[in-house]
Simulated assay, not measured.
Amino acid sequence: MDLFDDLPEPTQTSFAPPAQDEEDRRFKRRRDDEEEEEEDEIKKVCREGLPRLRGYAAARRGEREEMQDAHVLMPDMSSCLSSLPGHVSRISYFAVFDGHGGARASRFAAENLHLNLAKKFPSGDAENLDKLLKKCLLDTFRQTDEDFLKKASSQKPAWKDGSTATCILVVDDTVYSANLGDSRAVLCRTEAAADGQRKSVTLALSKEHNPTIYEERMRIQRAGGTVRFILLACDGLFKVFSADEAVKFVLGVLQETSVEQKDELTEEELRFEAACQQLASEAVRRGCADNVTVILVSVCH
């Protein structure tokens, strides 16, 4: 889902062959230094031009004997990769895993899926990055599943755990969503209505009708639309909330005028944290007996 214009590709640094004389080597070092500075400056501009992502999570055990959900918040996944491909300057990853039959599968996925993703991530000046990333996500899900099944079958008695997986991967200004099972990812955006007011619209990221379609993305931009946040949650939430109800509940908390101040958090961060916690608690209050895990990803322009 492209949110902004394409970013410039950084200049690539080349290295001098060892047979050059000393003067050539000094000149080459100066040129390399200049190119590295230029590349750093380009990447700095790229980062400053991207929306700031921040994840908030809330988890409730409900009436279950144990918490079988797991989640991962990685606003900056770059440290897991040996290098970033091409002109990419930021990679973020958020995921919810709803375990069943035990917590081992969900925990395994939370600990290993992003590591497998990092290993398979396209590197260098990869052409067709979008196509490669989609294949990378498929291969990552398959690899993580195979690894867990191998480990589970080697136990005595064999583990019978399973898990859903719902992940979003943000590569600069593009959002990729991948899922297995009945956990969901939905996106909230605001756009101008016919009466001049702004309204919120809820989109299921797992469906075809979303901003990955060029015509739909252009329509959103022409209407003055902006993403406000992305919500990931296990089915415990959606047993007592529809997607629209969950988004409206979050918006209601975000728009409240009073919020308890904390020195280490901004007012906006406090609102998202409160919205995340209150949504999970409300699901339990509404009678959900299942585990409930909620992740809110704020998109700040």
Rank of each mutant, 00 (worst) to 15 (best):
D2V: 00
L7N: 03
L7Q: 12
E9H: 00
T13C: 11
A16Q: 07
P18C: 00
A19F: 15
D21C: 10
R29M: 11
D32K: 12
R47G: 04
E48R: 15
R52L: 11
G55R: 03
Y56F: 15
Y56C: 11
Y56G: 04
E65W: 05
D69Y: 06
H71L: 15
P75V: 05
D76H: 03
M77A: 15
S79V: 08
L81Y: 11
S82C: 02
S83A: 14
S83K: 01
P85C: 08
G86W: 10
V88C: 05
Y93R: 06
A95Q: 07
F97P: 09
F97Q: 06
G99W: 13
A103F: 12
F108G: 13
A109C: 12
E111N: 14
H114T: 03
K119H: 09
F121Q: 11
P122W: 10
E127Y: 00
N128E: 11
D130C: 02
L132M: 11
K134D: 00
L137Y: 07
D139H: 13
T140D: 09
F141Y: 14
D145F: 11
A152T: 10
S153L: 06
S153A: 13
P157I: 11
P157F: 02
D161K: 14
S163H: 06
S163D: 05
V171R: 08
V175S: 02
L180Q: 06
R184P: 02
V186L: 10
G196R: 00
G196Q: 02
Q197C: 01
K199G: 00
A204R: 09
K207D: 15
E208W: 04
I213T: 07
Y214P: 10
R219D: 15
G224P: 03
L231N: 03
L231G: 02
L232F: 03
A233P: 04
D235A: 06
L237R: 06
L237Y: 08
F241K: 10
A243D: 12
A246D: 05
F249Y: 13
V253S: 01
V253D: 00
V253M: 03
L254V: 03
E256W: 01
S258H: 12
Q261W: 02
K262I: 01
E264G: 01
E268N: 09
R271W: 01
F272E: 07
A275R: 05
A275V: 07
C276H: 04
A280V: 11
V284E: 14
R286P: 09
G287T: 08
C288Q: 08
D290V: 10
V292F: 07
V297W: 06
V297P: 03
V297N: 01
S298Q: 12
C300V: 14
